[in-house]
């Protein structure tokens, strides 16, 4: 097993993993919000196209 990667030991990667997690996780629910907006068909909210077109 690697003692370290890029000179950073595994304990340091825990801190970086927490930081990366708070960067990545919001994309999941935000893309869900964007999906809901697209489904709404409301153009002023930024929906891609109206529901019935």
């Amino acid at each position: 097993m690697l003692d370290n990667f890029l000179g950073i030991p595994s304990s340091g990667w825990i801190a970086i993993a927490i930081w990366l997690t708070v960067n990545v996780v919001p994309w999941i629910y935000s893309l869900f919000f964007v999906h809901k907006i697209n489904q709404s068909g409301v153009e002023r909210w930024g929906a891609k196209k109206p529901k019935n077109s």
Binding site: P26, S30, F33, V34, I37, W45
Partner: peptide, 10 residues
């Protein structure tokens, strides 16, 4: 719009 508002902080 809402979409731009959501994407801004990301």
């Amino acid at each position: 719009n809402v979409k731009t508002a959501i994407m801004t902080p990301l």
